[in-house]
C-alpha cells in the first residue's frame, strides 16, 4: 500500500519541463492530423452575430481594432471573422485604433487586405482604415460626435474629407451613422459605455481575450454590452455561424478560429489531467505522512 502511495505522491512533483513537453505534443498533434469537434454556440456570440448581420444598409460597422502581437493569439481570429462577415454581408466598415500598440492599424490592414482579395472589396468604398489616435476616453465621445474631426486623415494619409478617394466617408459623420461598434482587444474598454453613446443607441459588441471575459458578463446582463466574442472559442463559434449563414460563400480556408479550437481543447485536457494528478499526488503524500506518524506512534 505504501509503495503505491509513494508512487502516487510523485505525481505532486512532476517536473515543469515534462508538463510543457506533454502540452506541446498534445496541442501540436491536431495541427498535423486535423480533427473536428462539436461546438456549442453561446448566446452572446449569436447576439453579436445577429447585430452585425442586421446592420442597416445606410450605416457602417465601426471597429475599434486595438489588438497587437501580444494578443493576436485570440484577437486575430476574432477580428478576421468580423471583417469576413462585413465583407460577405456587403456592410461597409471603418476601422480605427485608440491608445493601442503602434502596430495595431498595420495588423488590421493586413487582415483587411487579405479578406478584401477573397471577397472583391475595395478600399475607400467598402472599408476605411482610419489609423491610430490617442486620448481615450475623451476621444470616444468625439468619435460619436464628429469622427472626421478626430481622424482628419486615414491610415494611408488620404484626407477623410476627400470623397473621391474615400467615398464611404461621405456619409459617415457621427454615431448616427454607425450600426454597431466592435471593440476588438485583449481588454475592451468599458469607457465606451459611458462616453461614446450614453443613450445606448448604438449596440456595443466586445471581442475580448478569454481571460478577462468573466468581468464583462455583468455588462451583458445589464444591456450595456449587447454581444461578445470570447477568445478563440468565440471566434470559432462566429466562424460556425458564418458557415451556417453563408455556406460555401464563406471562404473558411486559413480562418484561424476553427483551426485553433481543437488544439485548445486538447491543451485544456492536458491541464485538467495535470491538475488532477497534482491533487492525487498531494492526497497520497498526506496519507503517506499520516501512515508514517501512525507507525511511529505504534513503535513508541
Amino acid at each position: 500500500m505504501n509503495k503505491l502511495l509513494q508512487l502516487l505522491a510523485r505525481l505532486e512533483v512532476i517536473p515543469r519541463k515534462t508538463i510543457y513537453l506533454v502540452l506541446f505534443i498534445a496541442a501540436g498533434l491536431p495541427f498535423l492530423y486535423p480533427i473536428r469537434l462539436p461546438l456549442m454556440i453561446w448566446k452572446e456570440t449569436r447576439s453579436a452575430f445577429n447585430i452585425t448581420q442586421n446592420s442597416a444598409p445606410n450605416k457602417v460597422v465601426a471597429i475599434c481594432s486595438n489588438w497587437d502581437p501580444g494578443s493576436q493569439g485570440e484577437n486575430w481570429p476574432q477580428y478576421e471573422a468580423i471583417v469576413a462577415h462585413c465583407m460577405m454581408n456587403h456592410v461597409p466598415f471603418i476601422v480605427f485604433s485608440i491608445d493601442s500598440d503602434a502596430v495595431s492599424p498595420q495588423l488590421a490592414e493586413t487582415v483587411n487586405e487579405r479578406q478584401a482579395k477573397r471577397y472583391g472589396c475595395v478600399y475607400g468604398r467598402d472599408w476605411v482604415n482610419l489609423g491610430l489616435t490617442r486620448g481615450a476616453p475623451l476621444v470616444m465621445g468625439s468619435i460619436g460626435r464628429n469622427i472626421k474631426q478626430v481622424f482628419q486623415t486615414d491610415y494611408r494619409h488620404n484626407s477623410t474629407r476627400d470623397f473621391t478617394k474615400l467615398p464611404l466617408m461621405e456619409h459617415v459623420n457621427s454615431l448616427n451613422d454607425f450600426s454597431c461598434l466592435w471593440d476588438v482587444e485583449y481588454t475592451p474598454n468599458l469607457d465606451w459605455t459611458a462616453f461614446f453613446d450614453p443613450a445606448s443607441r448604438v449596440p456595443l459588441l466586445f471581442s475580448c481575450a478569454g481571460m478577462v471575459s468573466s468581468g464583462y458578463y455583468p455588462y451583458i446582463s445589464s444591456g450595456q454590452i449587447i454581444g461578445m466574442m470570447v477568445g478563440t472559442r468565440g471566434a470559432a463559434e462566429y466562424e460556425n455561424l458564418l458557415n451556417e449563414k453563408y455556406g460555401k460563400a464563406f471562404k473558411s480556408e486559413g480562418m484561424r478560429g476553427q483551426k485553433l479550437v481543437v488544439p485548445l481543447a486538447f491543451g485544456h485536457l492536458v491541464i485538467i489531467f495535470f491538475i488532477l494528478a497534482g491533487n492525487v499526488g498531494m492526497i497520497a503524500r498526506r496519507k503517506l505522512i499520516a501512515n508514517e506518524r501512525a507507525a511511529k506512534k505504534g513503535q513508541l
Partner: peptide, 18 residues
C-alpha cells in the same frame, strides 16, 4: 479563462511554427 487565453497564445505560435 486564464488557461484558455494562455493556451491560445501558445497555440498561435505553435501554429506558426508548424
Amino acid at each position: 479563462n486564464t488557461v484558455m487565453t494562455r493556451m491560445s497564445f501558445l497555440l498561435d505560435r505553435l501554429m506558426f511554427l508548424i
